[in-house]
Computed example of a mutant assay.
Amino acid sequence: MSSPQKIAVITGSSRGLGRADALHLAEAGVDVVVTYRSNKAEAEEVVAAITSAGRTAVALQLDTSVVSSFPDFGEQLGAELQARWGRATFDYLINNAGHDLTASFEATTEKDFDALVDVHLKGVFFLTQTLLPLISDGGAIVNVSSGLTRIINPGHAAYGAIKGAVEVLTRYQAKELGSRGIRVNVVAPGATATDFGGGMMKNNEKVRAYLESAVALGRVGEPDDIAAAVTALLSDANHWITGQRIEISGGQSL
């Protein structure tokens, strides 16, 4: 009897690292539920790319800062799983959605801090909690953190501290969900050329050159570098890895 088709749910996967994750997993034979906050057209482009690669995909709207919307999203996801795949569960959850804040510790406002918490901590905590009944036993969760939990870059105190909380949460999830065979790990990308943070690492040559000088492998990362590692981490070959922080930075600031 053949095993069920693997399915991944990736938050914030209409662009950036989430998009790269979706495309790499599709290349590895995984079907994908793409989520987007507001840009449906971008999400549908990702779905089209996955479909053209011979895999099945669907785009669902989700604002990970609105915890009250999670039960409805879970019901919608469950209906899509049944309609498209004839299943009640999916296999992989990647908590990727997020936004940056660049402000000194002194200048960070409570409003800005709360906005980060809502997406990066409350969103990850309560979305995963809501979707637990839909995650297959033996499945896997990847939370996305940042190299800024280790590499101190002034202007990112709130962002780095909240991502640090996600790393601690990951270990608790790994311990508590281990009885179901669910692996939970956290990846921490280093400097990566995306639109994140206004595209500074992609478009600002001075910033890019500075960061490249700090990376052992001599360049900033690309979305494909991160996505390849996430795809490998989710594969059955890494079934014995859980509760770990895995930095994907090319050896930044060693």
Rank of each mutant, 00 (worst) to 15 (best):
V9Q: 02
V9D: 03
A22Q: 00
L25C: 01
A26I: 02
E27D: 14
A28H: 03
V47E: 07
A48T: 09
V67H: 07
E75W: 05
L81E: 04
A83L: 10
A83Y: 06
W85R: 09
W85A: 05
F90A: 11
L93D: 03
I94N: 03
N96Q: 13
N96R: 06
A97Q: 08
D100Y: 11
T108S: 15
T108L: 11
T109K: 11
K111Q: 12
K111T: 14
F113L: 09
D114Q: 08
D114G: 09
D118T: 03
G123R: 11
G123N: 12
T130S: 13
S136A: 15
G139L: 01
I141Y: 04
V144L: 11
V144Q: 15
V144Y: 08
S145R: 01
S146I: 02
T149P: 09
T149A: 12
H156E: 09
G160T: 13
L169K: 10
Q173C: 11
A174Y: 05
S179T: 13
R183M: 06
N185M: 12
P189D: 12
G197P: 01
E205I: 10
R208F: 13
E212K: 06
E212D: 05
G218I: 09
G221V: 09
D224K: 08
A229F: 14
V230H: 07
S235N: 08
H239A: 09
I241E: 00
I241Q: 01
Q244G: 05
R245Q: 10
I246D: 01
G251E: 08
Q252W: 08
